[in-house]
Amino acid sequence: MRATLSRDIVLGAIPLILIAAVWQAIVSFGYAPAALLPPPGAVFVRLVHQLGGTDFLAQGGATLLRLFVGFTIAAVLGIGIGLMAAVHRGVDAVVRPLVRVLAPVPKVALYPALLLLLGFDHASKIALVVADALFPILLSTYYGATTIEQKLVWSALAAGTPPHQVLYKVVLPAAMPSILTGCRIALVISCIVVFLAEMISSTDGLGYLLVRAARSFQTVDMFVPLISISLLGLILNALLYGARKVLLRGFPEV
């Protein structure tokens, strides 16, 4: 077990090291001027340096808060609505066409309206994250819940399980792999969207740091938030992996 884990880490590290190497090579051989693409070393040194200061951590904290609150709301709504639509004809009849219309809408176009309704602070950014992260979770949940075997439901009902318990004792666990896949996609989207919202209009957060640095061509400072969100992706991936292990006991493991 430990051997596979360390093998996983080595395998996973190879492409990351390759990226850093290619990045360095691009800079060293002059395929991109340092003013547009700073050397990776400089970015990491600046990142470590900034992690020591409270200001950067506060900005990162604001972004994380928006990310997590937005994602959590989207997950609760997405799983809830998805399950309801899968098991109830009436809900399905309403939800399905609405999802078809609303899912492909570029939510960022609604952001100015959200700003006016909810202000420039957390609420408008969280709302944008919810709007964008909701649909991948909803679609995956719906798919997962509609494709479980009817036999499972019948046998649970036959065994005397009350219908409302079937929902979270049978349907929810059976749909779990699909739901988690949806969550993983939504998590990535949340990362992108929270950044985008902060880039468009904000006074704090990593996206704000990025856009401020970009405007004055402080390229190293611009890549520090980018690297932060990358590392955050790695951490979130590990967390999801852990959550998966707990939630999917008994499913085929890879």
Binding site: I192, L226, S230, L234, L236, N237
Partner: peptide, 15 residues
């Protein structure tokens, strides 16, 4: 999977 998973999670969240 071990090879691609981390790299995907590092590159995709970048806006």
């Amino acid at each position: 999977a071990s090879f691609f998973n981390p790299i995907l999670m590092v590159t995709y969240p970048v806006p």
